[in-house]
Amino acid sequence: MKVIVRRPRREVEMPGSRRVRDLLQELKINPESVLVVRGQELLTPDELVRDEETVEVVPAISGGSAHEV
């Protein structure tokens, strides 16, 4: 499968299928700070991603000290 990670943007090839929870763990990404999407679809941790699919890990955390205003 292909996993697109942002900031910095990179593409990771992972052979085989796995659950969202496991792919985040392998990439050492904290599930509390991201959402994983397949196309337009948001995926829960138990969702299986197949070998031929592409998912994107979208970071939820942003901003400098006075950013969100």
């Binding site: 900031r7 509390e32 700070s33 959402l35 901003g63 400098g64």
Partner: peptide, 30 residues
């Protein structure tokens, strides 16, 4: 949480700006 706000914006189809300000890199708040 920030993750829930992101989910809301995505699920509502809000066309938000998701580029990060270059000055945010390395910010203590992050």
């Amino acid at each position: 949480t920030e993750r829930e706000t992101l989910a809301y914006a995505m699920l509502r189809g809000i066309d938000y700006h998701d580029d990060e300000c270059p000055n945010a890199v390395g910010a203590t708040s992050l």
